[in-house]
Each structure stands twice: as structure tokens, then as C-alpha cells.
């Protein structure tokens, strides 16, 4: 095998800078689209490359060569993959398939649960207000999805704040943000190097919803205040159950400056700043990166295919 298959394996290493560029230089909507697409493409190409390496070793086995009617001598001469490399690739490929299957099962079950609970909540409105005093608010994906807000959260916010909260959650519902986050998490399950992209997608959908709320309320500062107040109120309510695990994993939580802080202060700071604009250069560069990754993978696949058809002709000249 030649250089392309190995090059393909290296693209996911750029996940951190890619996430950084997208979250800082693109509008959150574009960042969400780009990052989730990039995650899926990079997961597919890197796992595909592992698959190709595994296959390149398999086709050299004399038994398979006889079954498949190709010449193992020709394959041997045209392919330099060592057995050790192929073995490692095979193990990684198997692990990736297993992790993907595990993720799909768990996430499908979670989504089915969410959908059925969204349907089971009383009333026909999208909004469900619970009498709890603890401040909490979340969106449940469903058909239709629902927004659950506790009384404690409503009383922690002023009127524009409540409007911001509802607009934010409505954006999650209407734009089906769970599809992007699920796609990115799927990619990260297949290739753990892509976890920074999944974290960045989860952050970007929150920013997207914040920007939508800012449009609806007509005042970015009101939304910033609402997010900050809600977060402080939520921190001091006993009702919140478990600490966040997955979200914001890209951003380390210690240190004193904004760049080191968790997702909520970053969201607030972004809302206090200017309206985000997409830098066309950054967008083009990120897209080019994804396209090149895809191209390398396709090229590697073509190489193997060419080699196999050559070997096929060698064994059966008529």
C-alpha cells in the first residue's frame, strides 16, 4: 500500500485546531454544519483506511487468494503493508466497529426513550412548566419535541430572560440540533481522536440557539444576562442531579481566564461581543481540509482496487 492510506489516518489529528477555527471564526450555525460534517467524513475515511490496511493483509493470505481467484504474488509485489501494521490496523478497525455499534445501540435507545417521554408529557403545547423550585430547563427531542422549564428557573429570570430561554430552547427543537450532536458523537465513538469535534459541535449548537434567542429578543445583552443568571441559579439549586459529563469536554475547566473557562462563560462572553460573522477564508480552508481528507481516502481505496484487479488478471489470463 502506498502513502495515501497512511496520510488518511493522520487527518483526525487536526481535530483540535479545526474545532478551534470553526468555533472562533464561523457563525455558530456554519460551525455546527461544518464540524458535524467534518467529524462524519473524518471518521469514515480514517476507519476506511484501517479497513483497507486490514484488507491488504487479508488478500495476501494464500487461502483467500485461491478463493478469490487472484494472485498473491502480484499482491505481494504491489503492496508493502507489513503483517504487524496490518494486524494493528485490523484490531483498531474491529474496535472501531464495535464502539460504533455500541454507540448506535445506546443512543438509539436513549432517543426512543426521549421521543416516547416527549409524547407522554401532559398537554399538547411544546412548553411544559414543572412546579419544581430548582432552576432547570431543557429540550427533549421528539415528534414533536418538548421544552421543560421549572418554576424555579422561570422565577430566576426576568421577562426578557424568559423570552430568551424559550427562544433558545425553541431553536434546539426547530433546528433539530440533536441530529448534529448525535452524528458528531457517532464519529467520535468510531475514532476517539475526533472527540474534540463532538465537543465543539455540542458547544456550537448552544451558541446557535443563543444567537437565535438574541435575534428573537432583539438584544444580545439581555440574552447574555439570562444565560448567566440561569447558570448561577441552576448551580445553587439542589434539584440538578448529576454533573455534566460530555459537554464542553474540549475546554478545560480550570484556570482564571475566559479562554480556560467552561462553556457557559464563553457563551455569555460571545453574546456580550459583536454579532458573529463567518470568515469566508476560514470556511474555505476548513472545507478544503475535509475535501482533501476525503480525496486521500478515495485514492487509497482506488489503489487497492487497482492492485486487486491486476492480481485477478494475473491468475486467470484467459
Amino acid at each position: 500500500m502506498h502513502v495515501y492510506v497512511y496520510v488518511t489516518l493522520f487527518f483526525p489529528l487536526a481535530a483540535v485546531p479545526l474545532a478551534r477555527v470553526a468555533t472562533t471564526r464561523l457563525h455558530p450555525r456554519h460551525a455546527t454544519w461544518l464540524l458535524s460534517a467534518a467529524a462524519v467524513v473524518l471518521a469514515a475515511t480514517s476507519c476506511g483506511a484501517l479497513g483497507l490496511l486490514t484488507m491488504a493483509a487479508l488478500v495476501r493470505m494464500p487461502l483467500l487468494a485461491r478463493l478469490g481467484h487472484w494472485s498473491s504474488t502480484v499482491v505481494d509485489s504491489g503492496d508493502s503493508t507489513s503483517t504487524a501494521v496490518a494486524l494493528i490496523a485490523g484490531v483498531l478497525f474491529g474496535a472501531a466497529l464495535l464502539a460504533t455499534a455500541r454507540f448506535v445501540t445506546a443512543r438509539t435507545r436513549a432517543l426512543i426513550d426521549a421521543f416516547s417521554h416527549a409524547r407522554g408529557l401532559p398537554g399538547r403545547d411544546s412548553l411544559v412548566v414543572t412546579p419544581e423550585q430548582g432552576a432547570d430547563a431543557y429540550t427533549i427531542p421528539g415528534w414533536p419535541g418538548r421544552i421543560v422549564v421549572s418554576s424555579g428557573m422561570l422565577s430566576a429570570l426576568d421577562q426578557p430572560g424568559r423570552q430568551a430561554l424559550l427562544a433558545h430552547e425553541n431553536a434546539h427543537l426547530n433546528q433539530r440540533h440533536y441530529i448534529y450532536t448525535t452524528a458528531a458523537r457517532l464519529a467520535a465513538a468510531a475514532n476517539p481522536l475526533l472527540r474534540p469535534l463532538a465537543g465543539a459541535v455540542e458547544y456550537s449548537v448552544e451558541r446557535w440557539a443563543d444567537e437565535h434567542a438574541a435575534d428573537a429578543v432583539g438584544d444580545r445583552r439581555q440574552v447574555a444576562t439570562a444565560v448567566a443568571r440561569a447558570a448561577i441559579a441552576a448551580k445553587h439549586s439542589p434539584a440538578r442531579l448529576t454533573p455534566a459529563v460530555a459537554l464542553g469536554a474540549v475546554f478545560s475547566r480550570n484556570g482564571g481566564s475566559l479562554t480556560d473557562s467552561g462553556p457557559v462563560p464563553r457563551r455569555v462572553a460571545a453574546l456580550l461581543g459583536p454579532v458573529p460573522r463567518t470568515s469566508l477564508i476560514a470556511l474555505a480552508a476548513a472545507l478544503a481540509f475535509v475535501v482533501v481528507a476525503g480525496g486521500c481516502a478515495l485514492h487509497a481505496a482506488n489503489e487497492l482496487q487497482d492492485l486487486l484487479s491486476l492480481a485477478h488478471h494475473a491468475v486467470d489470463p484467459n
Binding site: 432547570d136 431543557y138 434546539h172
Partner: peptide, 20 residues
């Protein structure tokens, strides 16, 4: 299951709270 819910705000560290 947690991941399919979109919470309005995620939990804060003490440090984040001071910043806010």
C-alpha cells in the same frame, strides 16, 4: 440519555461562577 437532552445551561465550576 443525558446527552439527548439539551439543557439551557450546563453546570458551572466555582471558577465559572465567579467569572459570570
Amino acid at each position: 440519555r443525558r446527552a439527548v437532552l439539551s439543557r439551557f445551561v450546563e453546570d458551572l465550576s466555582d471558577n465559572d461562577e465567579q467569572l459570570l
